[in-house]
Amino acid sequence: MAGGRFLRYIVWRLLQAVPVILGVTVLCFLMLQLAPGDLATVLAGEAGGASPGFIEELRARYGLDKPLLVQLALYIKNVAVLDLGFSFRHNATVASLLAERLFPTLLLMGSTLLLSVGLGVLSGLFAAIWVRTWRDHVISLVAIVAYATPLFWVGLMLILVFSIRLDWLPTSGMEDVVAFYEGWDRAVDIARHLVLPAITLSLFYLALYARLMRATMLEQRGLDYVTTARAKGLTERQITFRHVFRNALLPVVTMAGVQVGGLLGGSVVVESVFAWPGLGQLAFEALFSRDYNLLLGIFFMSACLVVLVNIVVDIVYVLLDPRIKVGT
């Protein structure tokens, strides 16, 4: 593949993201309009009340007395330079709060992705190899139950069993803050705290990928290239692992990319169950303090993250599958 063409493809994909991000921004603005009270009343409320005259003055200062379209333009201009407003509850800019909480969420999502894709692909593969035997039935049954289980409930049940009854793993948080671990000990401590949240968030997606993998494996097995491979005298094992497995992997990769938005949503629930100090926990706090600026900032950032991941998945896909041609 020509390097220049590939670069053009990346630029083109990035340009495609612009209207989506713009749409998200407009959506945020509209929802902010729907929210009860505006910036001026919030400020006045924080200050413990203010005269109507002062509120008017605040409105004029922040441009809230301007026509709606001018306000929207202002809002877009601010978002473009990543000025997502100010959180009065935390007394910090929304952007700085988001940056602070990004890492724990990415850590949780990354581990979940590895766990769910890895185990999902494996269990789907084995279910397909053992199709219509009791082992396939057991895998499929577990998958269909996991697929129907509410995340928050799995989290609580895991805490009940592994933290409260067996006392193997910590119940909440990302690390033991009073232990002052450093270096390797700290990494181990974080890993121990990560186990239950990552399993909780993985379960649903693991089931999803396992079912998808099984279905695609079975579908691929009936295709012509498998007959060709068999006619060439390859063993069933070679056919399964070298040919069918690789082709069945592609839909799972696509699905994993599509599910990133869902993963972010799930992390709100999981982080609130395990008090994991990431974006989800921040969203949960913002809900209770009715901190709409912060809530919309989290929404905006998650949407950007999803768009970004989709672009990365598309690019990885082009690299993985030589049949996909770009920029013809």
Binding site: M31, L287, L295
Partner: peptide
């Protein structure tokens, strides 16, 4: 279809949370 894709792209559960919070 562009609008539909847009709604499929944005993270749905977080969107639902924001909507319920704002609508009360």
């Amino acid at each position: 279809m562009r609008i539909t894709e847009f709604f499929q792209t944005i993270p749905s559960f977080i969107f639902a949370i924001v909507l319920v919070a704002i609508l009360a």
